[in-house]
């Protein structure tokens, strides 16, 4: 039974990946173009216009953008994918969670390809990897778990309430600015930092930069807090999703 689901996840995510680039002129290039254009805009505005002073600002930005894009695109896709695969869910006994996982796996393909391209480019500019980089896969894994947990929470909501998708778009816009993507979290007023750092995506991006740009391992205490937050969200998400699982397909 489990093997059968793994096969469905593989075929669905791979099929979606192929479909995304079928018949497009730039093909795979699109997954690089999006972060590069975002990088150019933010770089010009914040570095040239607003004179932000952060070391290696282009790389700093790019790491934030890549993780952000994965989180934002994967969560949005997970909502849309539910409707795109409604015919499968309604006419076979494939459980909704299989479709959710396939959606995340599909987003993960693009995320990993972008990361490979990122490391290729940064090496061309003389980036010297340190031992800390061995920790990077753990950070990627945390990002994936976080994204999965959030999807498990928002998908039932968006199926139940048709306007949730719009709310999620607005929420993402807000989240973008309460996540240290264009600025450093030190810029947040000291009174709010404690709350600010409850945002697991902020913590993950901060750790990713520590590992890549500073070549240092994240502080043990901090990374344990990050893992704690992510695991708590996963547990809550599984609990919420299980409760809605049965009626989810009927509401689609």
């Amino acid at each position: 039974m489990k093997k059968h689901y793994a096969a469905i996840i593989r075929e669905l995510s791979w099929g979606d990946f192929k479909l995304k680039y079928y018949g497009s002129v730039f093909g795979l290039l699109w997954s690089f173009l999006k972060p590069v254009i975002m990088l150019s805009i933010l770089y010009v505005v914040f570095y040239s216009f607003l004179k932000i002073t952060i070391e290696h600002y282009a790389w700093y930005l790019l790491i934030g953008i890549i993780f952000w894009n994965f989180f934002a695109d994967a969560t949005k896709d997970s909502i849309q994918n539910m409707y795109a695969k409604a015919h499968i869910l309604k006419n076979t006994n494939t459980p909704p969670i299989v479709v959710m996982v396939s959606s995340i796996v599909h987003s993960l393909f693009t995320f990993l390809i972008t990361l490979v391209a990122f490391f290729a480019i940064i090496s061309m500019f003389g980036f010297a990897p340190s031992n800390a980089l061995f920790f990077f896969p753990c950070i990627v894994l945390l990002a994936v778990l976080l994204t999965f947990a959030v999807s498990l929470i928002i998908v039932p909501l968006s199926v139940r309430f048709k306007d949730f998708e719009h709310m999620w778009d607005i929420f993402l816009q807000m989240l973008f600015w309460v996540t240290p993507i264009v600025y450093q979290h030190y810029a947040v007023p000291a009174a709010y930092v404690k709350w600010y750092l409850l945002n697991p995506l902020a913590r993950i991006i901060i750790d990713a930069r520590t590992v890549i740009l500073a070549g240092a391992f994240p502080e043990t205490k901090q990374i344990l807090i990050t893992i704690g937050i992510v695991l708590f969200l996963c547990a809550a998400a599984v609990f919420i999703f299980k409760r809605s699982d049965k009626s989810l397909v009927e509401q689609l």
């Binding site: 059968h4 096969a7 469905i8 593989r10 075929e11 669905l12 099929g15 192929k18 479909l19 079928y22 018949g23 499968i88 076979t92 494939t94």
Partner: peptide, 17 residues
Amino acid sequence: HHELTAEENLYLYGAIL
């Protein structure tokens, strides 16, 4: 899926079955 070929669809549909 209408954008996939017959062969690709057999793998996809096969997985579902």
